[in-house]
Write a protein that binds this DNA or RNA. Structure first.
Length: 923
RNA sequence: GCCCAGGUGGCGGAAUUGGUAGACGCGCUGGACUCAAAAUCCAGUGUCCCUUAAAGACGUGCGGGUUCGAUUCCCGCCCUGGGUACCA
C-alpha cells in the first residue's frame, strides 16, 4: 500500500479538530512552554509559501516540547487592523470589517491544511471589541501615569499632583516635555485647564504639538519606523515634516531600561545591535552659550565637549525656537527665505541630497565660554530639531559635517587635536576620538579621553552646563488620521483631553458612510453620527496606529476569554512570558520595541510579572520567488528556448511559474494561460522549451507566487513542512525552488514502506539487532540536538540516512520503528499519527513521550584509526578502543605500509584527536 | 560612511566549532525492472593529469600568519546580502 497523503492528512486534521487535540489549559503539575509566531496581517492575497516558514519551525518545536513533557501554549490570531483593508474600503465602499473577515477565513483555511498544532480556542483578532477593550484600557493607564527618573518607573499621576501641591515641580525628575519651574503656591493658583495642560507634559500617553512625519497621500501621520528613506513603508509615498497636535507615547522614558534589558535576552546579536543603534545612547554634555547683546542663553548638546576650544560657529535646526529669537532685523528676510525653502523640501529630498550644503546666517553671535570669542550663529537643515536641543556647536576641524559647512561658507577651521601623524586639515576633518589636545588652554597636552572628563567637570563647576546622556529613541506618535483602527477612549472638555471611565470600554468603532477625511479636513471619524459622550462632549477623531493592537497580544493569549482583565493573575503567573518568539527581523525597530515598552509599563503597574515579553527570539529568513522567463522573438509570436535565444533578438517575458516544471514550460498550459499566446509558436531544444530564471521578490506581478495549497495538493502537507525546513537554515533568506521537493517526498514514502511489506502493514516484535539499535539511537540523538538548536535543515537528512540504513537492513522491528514515529511526529504529524494508530495506539501521538537515546548503543569495540604523517592521511589501522599511544606506535612501526615513512626517522609525537585520527610527527 | 551577516562542487547546503572537506537532497551519467512509460531500485559524479586503473597534484573569495594539522583562529584586502544614516 503506497502512502496516500490526501486521505491520511484529511483524516487526522478532522480528528484533531474534533478531539480538540491541541487545546491547552494551565496545569501547574507540568512545566510550561510558550511558543509564539508573530501573528499575520490577513491580506487579500492569501498565504504564499514564504509565510508558513516560521510557523512550521515553531510548530515543530511546539510539538517536540509537548513530547518532552511540557505544557505548551501555541496560539494564533490576526493583526486585523491595517491600511490595505481601509484603502480597499475607500475604493469600493466595502466595510473593512467585511474584507478582513473574508481574508481571515481564507488564511484559516490555508493554515489548517498545513497541520499546525495551534489552540484555536485562544484565537484573537485585534479588531474585535473584546480584544481592543484592553488596548484602550492600557492607553488609559498610560494617560494616568508618568515616568519618574529617580525610581526609573511609571508612577500614578495622583502622586504627581500631590507633590506639585506640596512642593511645586522643582524636585521632581520626570521624563517629561519641557516645563517651566513652578512652586506649590503657583500650582494651587492654576485653574483646571492650566493644571491639565502641565500634566500633559508628564503623562506617558500625552497630547502635544510635535514634529511628525506627515504623509499627504495616505492622509495620516506615521511613526519613525513606518518611514524608510523618506517614504512611507506602506505604499512608498513621500513624507514631509509637519508640526501637529498628536497623541504620543513616552517610549523614550524607557530608553535605558530597553537598552539594559537586551542583555537579559536570548536574541541574535545582530537584532540586539539594531535595537541598540535605534535607541542610540550617547554620552556628552549640555552646554550653555551666552549670546552677544541678548539676555538669552543658547543650549546645545555635544558628545565632543573636548573640542570646545575649536568651535568656530553654531548651527540651529530650521524648526528650532531659537531661530526666531536670534534672527536680527538685517537678516530677517534671508532667514525667512531659507525657512521657506526648507519647508518645501520633502524628507526624501533632504535625505537624498545629504551632500548638498545649505544654510543662512542669523546675524547673532554667541560667546565661547572658554575662549571668549564671538562665534556666528547659523541655521541649517543638517541639524535636526528632534535630537538634543536642536542646536549644535560646530567644530569643523573634528566633525566632517561641520567641516563641509565651514568650507562651503568659508568659516574658520581651528584644529584642537593632534593625531600625531600630521593630519591635513586642508583635505578633511579629523573625527577620531584619539590624539593630544592642542590650542585648548587648560586641556593642552591631554589625551582626548581624559580631556572629555576634565572639560565636563569644568563646565559643571562653572555652572554653564552638565554631563548628559542622550538617546536617539523618540517618543512614538500614536495618532492616525484613519478609520480602521482602535478608537481612543478620549473625549474633550474645554479643549482638554479626558479619559472615558473604564466601565465605558470598549468604545466601539462606529460605522460611517465613506472612509475618507471630512470636507473640513478632519479624520474619517468626523463623519460618525453621535460621536460624543452621553454628556455631549466630543470624542477623539483619531484612531490608534497598527502597533497598538500588536503590543500586548501575547498576554491576551494567556487568558483570552477573561472579561475582567487583560490577563488574569493566575494565568500570567503560570505562562509568564513568551519562551520562543518567531518572526521577521523587519520588526526590530517597531513592534519589538513597542511591545517591550508596553510590557515594561504594565510590569511597573504590577499587571504582569515579567519585565521582558520575549525571552528567545528567532528571525526566520524570507523566501524569495524564483521567476521564470520565456523569450519572444521580437515582432513575432514565436518563443525560443533559453539555450537558443542568443541567435535571435528576443524580449524576456515573465511566465507563471505554476505552468513551468523544472524550468521546462508546459506548452499547452502556456497557450491557455493568456489569449495573446493561444497561437504561440515555439523553437525547442531537444524537444523541450527551457525557461530562463531569476531570483526576485515573491509577488503577483512577477508571476512567481507559489501557493502552499498547490504544493499540498501535489505532495501533501507533510512534504511541504519537511521541504520548507530542508531548504536551508531557518534564518537565511532563500529562494523557493520546487526542484528538490521530490527528494523529501520520496523519503516520506520510503519511511512509510519501512512499516509495510508489499500492501500490508507489518512490523515484527522480534528483538532488534545491535546494528539496528545503533542506527536508532544515533538518529534520536542527532534529531534531539538539532531540534534544540533549531537546526531543522540537518535533522531531515538524519531521518533520511536512518531510513536508508534500516531499509538496507530490512528492519521491521517495532522496538526500532515505534520510537522513530514519535521522533518524526513534530515534522510530519499526519503520517506519524497514521503510523502510530496502525501500531495499535488509540491515543494521539501527541500524548507520546519523545524517545530517549543511550550512548551505550553508539560505542564500538574497535576503531579504524586513520594514520597520518605530518597531517597527511596514508592508511588505516584497526585498534581496540582502549589503545594507548604506545600501542599505536608499536602498531604503526609494525605496519608494512608505514615502512617507507618511518625508515630512518624517529617518531617524535603521536597526537590522537577526537575523531580517532592519529597524527604522527616524524623527527 | 557606519553596524551586522555571509562567500564551500553544476545547484540548495553539511562539517560534532582546530581533526579524513563536500553529509543529505537536487541535477546529471550509466544500469536493472517494463512492450513502453510512470514508479521503484542499484552504481557513478569536486577539478586536473590519464585509453583505463593504480598512484599523484590541486582544491572552502584573494594575500599573508599561527599550528603536526585551518572552511574553522589572527592580520590585510576583494565581493555579495541585510540594517542604518546629516543623531553633533
Amino acid at each position: 500500500m503506497e502512502y496516500n497523503f490526501k486521505e491520511v492528512e484529511k483524516k487526522w486534521q478532522s480528528y484533531w479538530k474534533e478531539h480538540h487535540t491541541y487545546r491547552v489549559e494551565t496545569d501547574p503539575s507540568k512545566p510550561k512552554y510558550y511558543v509564539l509566531d508573530m501573528f499575520p496581517y490577513p491580506s487579500g492575497a492569501g498565504l504564499h509559501v514564504g509565510h508558513p516558514l516560521g510557523y512550521i519551525a515553531s510548530d515543530i518545536y511546539s510539538r517536540y516540547k509537548r513530547l518532552k513533557g511540557f505544557n505548551v501554549l501555541h496560539p494564533m490570531g490576526y493583526d486585523a487592523y491595517g491600511l490595505p483593508a481601509e484603502q480597499y474600503a475607500i475604493q469600493t465602499g466595502q466595510h473593512p470589517a467585511v474584507t478582513t473577515e473574508k481574508n481571515i477565513a481564507r488564511y484559516r483555511e490555508q493554515l489548517d491544511k498545513i497541520g499546525f498544532s495551534y489552540d484555536w480556542d485562544r484565537e484573537i483578532r485585534t479588531c474585535d471589541p473584546k480584544y481592543y477593550k484592553w488596548t484602550q484600557w492600557a492607553f488609559i493607564q498610560m494617560f494616568n501615569h508618568w515616568f519618574d527618573n529617580d525610581t526609573q518607573k511609571a508612577e500614578p499621576i495622583a502622586k504627581l499632583t500631590e507633590r506639585f501641591a506640596a512642593e511645586g515641580n522643582k524636585n521632581t525628575h520626570a521624563a517629561c516635555s519641557e516645563t517651566p519651574v513652578f512652586t506649590a503656591e503657583e500650582w494651587r493658583a492654576k485653574n483646571e485647564k492650566e493644571q491639565q495642560e502641565i500634566l500633559l507634559n508628564y503623562r506617558i500617553a500625552y497630547l502635544a504639538d510635535t514634529m511628525v512625519n506627515w504623509c499627504p497621500r495616505l492622509g495620516t501621520v506615521l511613526a519613525n519606523d513606518e518611514v524608510k528613506e523618506g517614504l512611507s513603508v506602506r505604499g512608498g509615498f513621500p513624507v514631509v515634516q509637519k508640526k501637529m497636535r498628536q497623541w504620543s507615547l513616552r517610549v523614550s522614558a524607557y530608553a535605558q531600561r530597553l537598552l539594559d534589558g537586551l542583555d537579559t535576552l536570548d536574541w541574535s546579536d545582530s537584532l540586539k545591535d539594531v535595537q541598540r543603534n535605534w535607541i542610540g545612547r550617547s554620552r556628552g554634555a549640555d552646554v550653555l552659550f551666552d549670546v552677544q547683546g541678548k539676555d538669552l542663553k543658547l543650549e546645545i548638546f555635544t558628545t565632543r565637549p573636548d573640542t570646545i576650544f575649536g568651535v568656530s560657529f553654531m548651527v540651529l535646526a530650521p524648526e528650532s525656537d531659537y531661530v526666531q529669537m536670534l534672527t536680527t532685523p538685517e537678516q530677517a528676510n534671508a532667514v525667512a527665505e531659507y525657512l521657506d525653502y526648507v519647508a518645501k523640501r520633502t524628507e526624501r529630498e533632504r535625505q537624498s541630497e545629504v551632500k548638498r550644503v545649505t544654510g543662512v546666517f542669523t546675524g547673532s553671535y554667541a560667546v565661547n565660554p572658554f575662549t571668549g570669542d564671538a562665534i556666528p550663529v547659523w541655521v541649517s537643515e543638517y541639524v535636526l530639531a528632534g535630537y538634543g536641543t536642536g542646536a549644535i556647536m560646530a567644530v569643523p576641524a573634528h566633525d566632517s559635517r561641520d567641516y563641509a559647512f565651514a568650507k562651503h561658507f568659508d568659516l574658520p577651521i581651528v584644529p584642537v587635536i593632534d593625531d600625531g601623524e600630521g593630519h591635513d586639515m586642508a583635505e578633511s576633518s579629523y573625527d577620531a576620538k584619539a590624539g593630544k589636545m592642542i590650542n585648548s588652554g587648560i586641556l593642552n597636552g591631554m589625551e582626548v579621553k581624559d580631556a572629555i572628563a576634565r572639560i565636563i567637570d569644568e563646565i559643571e563647576s562653572r555652572g554653564i552646563g552638565h554631563g548628559k546622556v542622550n538617546y536617539r529613541l523618540r517618543d512614538a506618535i500614536f495618532s492616525r488620521q484613519r478609520y480602521w483602527g482602535e478608537p481612543f477612549p478620549v473625549y474633550y472638555k474645554d479643549d482638554m483631553p479626558y479619559m472615558l471611565p473604564e466601565s465605558a470600554l470598549p468604545l466601539e468603532l462606529p460605522d460611517i458612510d465613506t472612509y475618507l477625511p471630512t470636507e473640513t479636513g478632519e479624520p474619517p471619524l468626523g463623519r460618525a453620527k453621535n460621536w460624543k459622550t452621553k454628556e455631549g462632549y466630543p470624542l477623539e477623531l483619531n484612531t490608534m496606529p497598527g502597533f497598538a493592537g500588536s503590543s500586548a497580544y501575547y498576554l491576551r493569549y494567556m487568558d483570552p476569554h477573561n472579561d475582567k482583565a487583560l490577563v488574569g493573575r493566575e494565568a500570567d503567573e503560570y505562562w509568564r512570558n513568551v519562551d520562543l518568539y518567531l518572526g521577521g527581523a523587519e520588526h526590530a525597530t517597531g513592534h519589538l520595541i513597542y511591545s517591550r515598552f508596553w510590557n515594561m509599563f504594565l510590569y511597573d503597574l504590577g499587571y504582569v510579572c515579567e519585565p521582558e515579553p520575549f525571552k528567545k527570539l528567532i528571525n526566520q529568513g524570507m523566501i524569495q520567488g524564483r521567476s521564470n522567463f520565456v523569450y519572444r522573438i521580437q515582432g513575432t509570436n514565436t518563443f525560443v528556448s533559453a539555450g537558443l535565444r542568443k541567435d535571435y533578438k528576443t524580449t524576456e517575458i515573465h511566465v507563471d511559474v505554476n505552468i513551468v516544471k523544472n524550468d521546462i514550460l508546459d506548452i499547452d498550459a502556456f497557450r491557455a494561460w493568456m489569449p495573446d499566446y493561444a497561437n504561440a509558436e515555439f523553437i525547442l531544444e531537444e524537444g523541450k522549451y527551457v525557461c530562463g530564471w531569476a531570483i526576485e521578490k515573491m509577488s503577483k506581478s512577477m508571476f512567481n507566487v507559489v501557493n502552499p495549497d498547490t504544493v499540498i495538493e501535489e505532495f501533501g502537507a507533510d512534504t511541504l513542512r519537511l521541504y520548507e525546513m530542508f531548504l536551508g537554515p531557518l534564518e537565511f533568506s532563500k529562494p523557493w525552488d520546487t526542484q528538490g521537493i521530490d527528494g523529501v517526498y520520496k523519503f516520506l514514502r520510503k519511511f512509510w514502506r519501512l512499516f509495510h511489506n508489499g500492501d500490508s502493514f507489518k512490523v515484527s516484535d522480534a528483538e532488534p539487532t545491535k546494528e539496528e539499535l545503533k542506527t536508532l539511537h544515533k538518529t534520536i540523538k542527532k534529531i534531539e540536538s538539532d531540534i534544540e538548536n533549531f537546526s531543522f535543515n540537518t535533522s531531515i537528512p538524519a531521518f533520511m540516512i536512518c531510513t536508508n540504513e534500516l531499509s538496507a537492513l530490512k528492519c521491521d522491528k517495532r522496538a526500532v520503528l515505534e520510537p522513530l514515529v514519535v521522533a518524526i511526529a513534530p515534522f510530519a504529524p499526519h503520517m506519524a499519527e497514521e503510523l502510530w494508530h496502525l501500531l495499535g495506539h488509540t491515543d494521539s501521538v501527541t500524548t507520546a513521550t519523545f524517545p530517549a537515546w543511550d550512548e551505550k548503543y553508539l560505542t564500538e569495540d574497535a576503531f579504524d584509526y586513520p594514520i597520518s604523517f605530518n597531517g597527511k592521511v596514508r592508511f588505516k589501522l584497526q585498534m581496540p578502543l582502549t589503545a594507548t599511544n604506545a600501542d599505536i606506535e608499536a602498531a604503526v612501526k609494525a605496519a608494512p605500509e608505514a615502512a617507507k615513512w618511518t625508515e630512518g626517522k624517529t617518531i617524535r609525537k603521536i597526537i590522537i584527536v577526537p575523531k580517532k585520527i592519529v597524527n604522527i610527527v616524524l623527527g
